[in-house]
Design a protein around this nucleic acid. Structure first.
Lengths: 87, 87
DNA sequence: ATAGTATTTAGATATTTGCCTAAATATACA
DNA sequence: TGTATATTTAGGCAAATATCTAAATACTAT
């Protein structure tokens, strides 16, 4: 859970997730969407992966990143506890 | 939104939120639940307040902190976008 | 008024984070 | 094999963060 909130605590990483909502993308395609170096984007993707928010799949010399929404459910579940008072 | 994820990106602050789910608490009561100095807890509470995740109300020399769940809905709404593919 | 309790503000320090460039690795292709 | 492209790893630096102690502020009560 720690990794998840850490991953979400950055505007660039959140924007990457939103991009991936449209379609799977290679690192290079993602890099082109930002004014940030490749290595930095690579690092962001690594953190997103550690949080299980994205998957990656190698295809030739490209690596495609895609959304992994299984963790999203967990976050929502965690958040839901606050919508009901604990007795 | 940035403030919210920033506020949630700390185990102590998340634990404070969970504590407040049970009942409103004074700063001192919260401090007693952790092995962290008063000023540090005060700072955490400040960040939670900036994120609109808690409210505070002065009562004599005490300040009571309580949950504010209005932002929780916004986070869930943001998260929900990932559960449906963008066309 | 003085002393005591509750909380915040200020200032210092160690750790973490985000960014960069340069170098390393992996694959493709001529 | 040798060169170009895609991505990651490594190393370094500046800014942000979490923590602490000491001092300031606010209220209570003797």
């Amino acid at each position: 859970m720690n990794n998840v909130f850490k991953a979400l605590n950055d505007p660039t990483r959140r924007e990457i997730l939103e991009l991936l909502r449209g379609k799977d993308m290679t690192v290079g395609e993602i890099v082109d969407k930002f004014h940030i170096s490749g290595p930095s984007i690579s690092h962001h993707l690594d953190l997103l992966k550690q949080a299980n928010l994205v998957n990656s799949k190698k295809n030739g010399q490209f690596i495609y990143y895609s959304l992994n929404t299984t963790v999203v459910d967990e976050i929502m579940k965690w958040l839901l506890q606050f919508k009901s008072k604990k007795k």
